[in-house]
Design a protein around this nucleic acid. Sequence first.
DNA 1: CGGCAGATCTTGACAGTGAAAAGATACGGG
DNA 2: CCCGTATCTTTTCACTGTCAAGATCTGCCG
Lengths: 201, 201
Amino acid sequence: MTERDRYHHGDLRGALVDAALELLEAEGSEAVTLRAVARAVGVSHAAPYHHFEDKASLEVAMTKQIRLDLAQTLSTVATASGSDSPDLAVAYVVWAIEHPQRFRMLNRAHSFVDNVTTTPAQPARGFAFDLLMDSMRVGQESGYFADNDPQDLALAAWAAVHGLATLLLDGRLTDGPPTVSEARRLALSVTRVLGYGLLRR
Amino acid sequence: MTERDRYHHGDLRGALVDAALELLEAEGSEAVTLRAVARAVGVSHAAPYHHFEDKASLEVAMTKQIRLDLAQTLSTVATASGSDSPDLAVAYVVWAIEHPQRFRMLNRAHSFVDNVTTTPAQPARGFAFDLLMDSMRVGQESGYFADNDPQDLALAAWAAVHGLATLLLDGRLTDGPPTVSEARRLALSVTRVLGYGLLRR
DNA sequence: CGGCAGATCTTGACAGTGAAAAGATACGGG
DNA sequence: CCCGTATCTTTTCACTGTCAAGATCTGCCG
C-alpha cells in the first residue's frame, strides 16, 4: 500500500507480477519460472508462496493485468472512432501483433483457470465482446448494420478478428514473423469481407 | 518397418508417438512428458533420445499426425457437401470441440517450430486453407460467392471459423465446457452472418 | 518504552523433469 | 562366425514447483 519500495517489506506481489510480465515479454513464456521471477526481484525462491498459492495463481494475476491493458487500448479506440469503422478490429489485431506473448497468455488462460471462477451467471467473454456488441447496437440504430441479433453480429466479428490474430501469431499466414503493416492490411481485408458478406448480392 | 511389435527392437518412434497422443487425450498436455511416454511404452526414460533429438521433436511428430487426422476428416466432408453449404465450417469447429487437446496442440505449434521449416516459398497455412480456397473458387464459378479475390474470401472464412473454435475451447463463450451441439449452433450462426455480411443491404 | 504475535522472508529438502555421457546389448552384413 | 553399429539402459546433472521449518522484521498492546 505504501508508495515507495520499502526496504525489507515493500510491495512484493506487485513487484512479482511486474517482473513476471517483463520476463514474459523479454524471454517468452517458457522463461517465466517462479524461481526466475523471484531472482529478478531479488528475493528467495520460496518468497512468492507467501503471496501466491500456486504458480497458476501468479499467472492468473498476470492475466488480469494484461486483460486490463488490452481493455484500455481498445476502449480508447472505441470512443475515438465511429461504430461503422474497422478501427476497433484493426486495433485488436495490431495489439496482438505488438504484444504477442501477452496475447498468447490471454488465450492460454484455460490452463490455469481453476481459481478464476468468473461470475457463473454470464460467461467470461471479457471486454472485447462487450465493446463489439455496443458498437453493433449503435451501428444498427444508425442504420449501418443488418438488424440481426446484435449478439450474433458481434460474435461473428469477434471470431473473425480473434481468429485472424491467432493465425498471424502462429505464423500460419506469413513466412517470417508477422509485421504490423501486414496485420493491418489483413485485418482490413477481413473486415471488408465480413461487412459485405461472402455471398453474391 | 516390420509390421508386428518386435521384441527388443520393434517400431519405437511410432509407438512413442502413439503413446504420446493417447497420453495427451487422456490427461492433457501437461502430462505429456518424455519420461511418462517412455514409461507408457515400457522403455527407459532415455530411449526416446535415439529417435527424437528433442522433446520438441516428439511434439513435431505428434503435430504432423494430428494435422493428418484433421485433414482427412475435412476432406471427406468437403467432397461430400456442396461448396455453398456451411458443412465444412461446422465440421472444423466440431472437430475442434471433439478433440480439444489435439486442436490446442496444433495451435501451440509455434512453440516447437525451430525444426519445422516448411518450404520457405509459401507459408504453412495448411490443409484447411487450401480446402476453403478451392471451395470458394468453385462457389464463385457456380455464381454463389462474390467475385473478390478468393484468397481474401477464404482468409475471412478461415479466420472466423478458427476464431470461433479457439474461443469455444478457451471457454470464452459458454459457462461450462462447450458441447458439440452448442458448437454446431454457433458455427451455423457465424457462417450465416459471414455469408450475408454485417452491413445492411 | 518493551516485548510479543503474526506476517514476511530464507534455508533446506524432495520428487519429477529434460538432457547428456558412458556403458551394455542385440541385429545384420561381411 | 564375428564384429561394427544402431538401439537401449544406467547414471548423472541442473533446474523446476512445492513444502516444512527456521529466521527476521512489523505493528500493536500494555
